[in-house]
């Protein structure tokens, strides 16, 4: 946020036109969302008795949301008006204006990081061992930004797509119960083993690709990358699990299970 203000404001006129176009879009989206919420909120109970508390307009659960949504409609309307006056509606239909220019490396990287965050949190963490998931996540980022590999973006994206589909398939097909949802945490130990195995295979693929096909060969960087990627998540998992008593999301994941066994049953750590 703040660094924006530090950016040199060259080509002021061109920038402000692009800004107005962006403002126009975001204002329109906000307006649509705010109006939808306002309509939804009107369905809240305005009077009557609920849970033993008498309800009148001033106690209604809709009072505050209506106020907030109403103000949001007004504010985004004002933003829309300002943007329209600066010709912000131009270029509204172009997809590039919404998603960014795909030929730009920075935009590609942006969507790559966002995509990785999404699969990591919504697919990997709830279905597999946290250590394995984190190593894959970390390696995918470092093999793009720290020690880049050849064709990294397309290779890594394909790998993650296959892996994510694989994990979802495992979760929805192995020993499913009625409560199973693709977002819920894996507790079924068979499903966890299958998922961990897929994760391990993906990890090995990625590791091989990154070590064997770098853009610029640099032995030192390769070693640092492998060490950081394998050891830092281990350190984090051990710290949280054994010192802060934070059980990992998938508690019976292969590595977590092994670490628990090693530390408590074998080493008898108390």
């Amino acid at each position: 946020m703040e660094q924006q203000s530090n950016a040199p404001s060259t080509v002021l006129t061109a920038g402000s036109a692009a800004d107005a176009q962006q403002d126009f879009k975001v204002a329109l989206v906000l307006l649509a969302v705010a109006v939808a919420l306002l309509v939804h909120t009107l369905g809240f109970p305005m009077s009557g008795s609920y849970g033993g508390v008498d309800n009148q307009w001033f106690v209604s659960p809709a009072l505050f949301p209506l106020l907030v949504c109403g103000l949001l409609v007004i504010c985004s309307g004002m933003l829309l008006y300002k943007a329209t006056r600066k010709q912000g509606f131009r270029g509204f239909g172009e997809l590039r204006g919404w998603l960014g220019d795909w030929r730009n490396e920075r935009i590609k990287d942006r969507w790559y990081v966002i995509g990785l965050l999404l699969v990591y949190v919504y697919v990997y963490i709830p279905s597999t061992d946290f250590y394995l998931a984190s190593v894959v996540f970390l390696l995918s980022l470092t093999s793009r930004f720290y020690y880049p590999m050849v064709n990294g973006l397309s290779r890594s994206s394909t790998l993650h797509l296959v892996l994510a589909l694989c994990l979802i398939a495992v979760k929805l097909n192995v020993n499913v119960s009625e409560d199973t949802h693709w977002l819920s945490i894996n507790y079924d130990e068979d499903a966890i083993r299958y998922s961990d195995l897929s994760m391990l295979m993906a990890l090995m693929c990625l590791l091989t690709l990154s070590v064997c096909f770098p853009q610029n060969k640099d032995r030192k960087r390769a070693v640092i990358q492998v060490l950081v990627v394998l050891l830092v998540p281990l350190l984090l998992v051990c710290t949280f699990n054994f010192l802060l008593y934070v059980p990992m999301p998938v508690e019976y994941g292969t590595v977590s299970d092994f670490l628990n066994y090693l530390v408590y049953d074998v080493l008898a750590f108390q």
Partner: peptide, 10 residues
């Protein structure tokens, strides 16, 4: 070690 771990852990 990881593969062994999965065997031992189960």
């Amino acid at each position: 070690a990881l593969i062994m771990a999965s065997v031992i852990a189960t």
